[in-house]
């Protein structure tokens, strides 16, 4: 029987086709891999923002004293930390009788933390790798906002998001109404 191998042209064409196929598969799988990584990071980022906002929505409304109050009622004012006296157990609140001093702030290492300054405890709400930024916003008379209301906006960075065409920064906001005190206080 006469058997012949592939010709050089056939081998080259086969190699070229295989190469294109491998490149395509590699490219798609790289993008898919990146996407999965970025998606997980973004999900993680959103979860941590949600966790921080939930914590603030739980503790801040029952505050009995604001130690970093907004002082101007007529203009937009933004603060980066919020120190207040609140209940040690936010599920068991006695009006006007906070027993614990808390502070929300972005620590020097970049993490957003809740400091329990009475008991010297710290809880990390958002990891430093997300480079969180927090804004406690008082819109003032521009929105005719009530003196017991403020907006909290938290943003985090999700690196590598740009590589798949998504914005690097994630942002979420929450409106917080205080039950017992005003966040705007005269000097």
């Amino acid at each position: 029987m006469h058997r012949r191998g592939m010709t050089l042209i056939e081998v080259l064409v086969a190699l070229a086709l295989a190469g294109i196929m491998f490149l395509a598969i590699f490219h798609v799988s790289t993008i898919a891999g990146k996407q999965v990584h970025v998606y997980i990071e973004r999900y993680n980022g959103y979860s941590q923002i949600g966790y921080a906002l939930d914590d603030m929505s739980l503790r801040l409304p029952s505050a009995s004293e604001i130690m970093t109050p907004f002082t101007k009622s007529g203009a937009l004012e933004i603060q980066r930390t919020m120190r207040f006296k609140g209940a040690s157990n936010p599920y068991d609140v006695t009006p006007y009788q906070g027993d614990t001093i808390y502070r929300y702030r972005v620590r020097e290492d970049g993490a957003l933390v809740l400091e329990d300054q009475t008991n010297d405890k710290t809880e990390v709400l958002i990891e430093s790798k997300f480079r969180p930024r927090v804004e406690f916003i008082r819109h003032g008379e521009q929105h005719d906002a009530e003196p017991d209301f403020m907006t909290v906006v938290i943003s985090v960075f999700c690196e590598r998001s740009k590589s798949i065409g998504l914005p690097e920064k994630l942002v979420k906001a929450e409106g917080i109404r205080f039950w017992f005190v005003d966040v705007v206080q005269p000097k």
């Binding site: 996407q35 998606y39 973004r42 959103y46 929105h143 906002a145 009530e146 017991d148 209301f149 907006t151 798949i164 065409g165 998504l166 994630l170 942002v171 979420k172 906001a173 929450e174 409106g175 917080i176 109404r177």
Partner: peptide
């Protein structure tokens, strides 16, 4: 990718809506 974008847009819209609702309920 586009489903993720849609989900993020929905989440953003929900966040904006909720903040404004809280502001007016106050």
């Amino acid at each position: 990718y586009y489903m993720l974008k849609q989900a993020e847009h929905k989440s953003r819209a929900m966040s904006i809506t909720h903040v404004k609702l809280q502001e007016y309920l106050a």
